[in-house]
């Protein structure tokens, strides 16, 4: 058997070498690779071998088969026959298969990007309820009832004591209630505001908020963290400024603007501040020992800056022609 295989191999290669025309080659193909060719003959012999011998020769035969085929194809190509045949049958200028185009929503893109920036510097991600009680959405965050700061967030009520959360800060309260410092988390999700629907405001939007609590995190560290974020998000030459502001849950508080070269103006991207000691006391942390910072941003706002979107309603209309662009 070994000899037969070797003979077939040697004679095939010498025959192939002497081929000059397509006809010559076709003769070789019929002789060796055809339906009644030598290769088939070898496989027929193989079938009658004992089970003990089969594995050994099976392998050898398979190698021979692929060797013969590829050598034949190489010769076919070198004679220029294969290519000219293909040219006759295929138009390679036709468009590729029309496969369906899927998209991730632009808000998801931005959320993912923000999440991954903060995850890269050790922040975990937390989630929480969209309907919550007044305590977790307001009071624990140092916004008592009948405080003018309530006017800053127009609220949808489910009942007088239950609200559609106006920010994801309620998650921070739940987090702190269940966990001792140190904390290094971002919270993200959907929030609601009872505002008139227009090109610049909708009844809901999405937020990412961050919270860092330990014994020494400072305003300077907050600045560093948020500068890192802004540069990762908007490019390393991003010009930004921190200006004093007011949020009941942080003190000192700041708003952060980045410079928009095209519009020649500052654009607000987030709010931040050192966590108000009252908030820490409300969740049972010792405010003499622990301190930290928090920040929050609207995802829609950042997406609008990033993609140059002028109407916030486009995000929730789910027009294919809009979604297809992301």
């Amino acid at each position: 058997m070994d000899k037969t295989i070797n003979d077939v191999k040697t004679s095939f290669h010498s025959d192939l070498k002497s081929c000059k025309t397509a006809d010559d080659l076709e003769q070789v193909r019929i002789k060796y690779l055809g339906r009644k060719g030598k290769l088939t003959e070898l496989f027929n012999q193989f079938a009658s071998l004992s089970n003990k011998e089969k594995p050994k020769y099976g392998k050898t035969l398979n190698i021979l088969k692929s060797d013969l085929n590829s050598s034949y194809n190489d010769k076919l190509n070198s004679l220029g026959i294969g290519i000219s045949e293909a040219k006759d049958s295929k138009d390679f200028s036709l468009p590729g298969y029309a496969l369906p185009k899927g998209n991730i929503h632009p808000l998801e893109h931005v959320t993912d990007e923000i999440k991954s920036i903060f995850k890269s510097i050790g922040f975990s991600v937390a989630y929480g309820p969209e309907i919550d009680d007044d305590y977790h959405n307001f009071e624990a965050l140092n916004v008592p009832k009948h405080h003018p700061a309530r006017d800053m967030q127009d609220t949808f009520f489910i009942d007088p004591n239950t609200v559609l959360r106006t920010h994801t800060s309620n998650v921070q309260i739940h987090l702190m209630e269940n966990q001792d410092p140190p904390l290094r988390h971002i919270c993200c999700g959907r929030v609601f505001r009872n505002e008139a629907v227009s090109y610049k405001s909708f009844c809901l939007f999405h937020q990412v908020e961050g919270l860092v609590i330990n014994e020494s995190s400072s305003f300077a560290e907050m600045k560093g963290t948020l500068e890192y974020f802004a540069k990762e998000m908007f490019g390393k030459d991003t010009k930004m400024r921190f200006r004093p502001s007011y949020f009941p849950f942080t003190e000192p508080s700041a708003e952060v603007d980045i410079w928009n070269e095209k519009l020649n103006q500052w654009m607000e991207i987030l709010g931040c501040g050192m966590v108000n000691p009252n908030v820490l006391e409300n969740v049972g942390y010792d405010s003499e020992r622990y301190q930290g910072f928090a920040f929050g941003m609207g995802i829609e706002r950042i997406a609008m800056i990033k993609y140059g979107i002028r109407d916030i309603r486009l995000f929730y209309q789910n027009d294919k022609r809009f979604l297809e662009q992301f």
Binding site: K101, G102, H105, F315, Y316, N318, K320
Partner: peptide, 11 residues
Amino acid sequence: VGFQQCYNNSL
């Protein structure tokens, strides 16, 4: 595989 993600209003 060709699906588009939507964000619809909760209200």
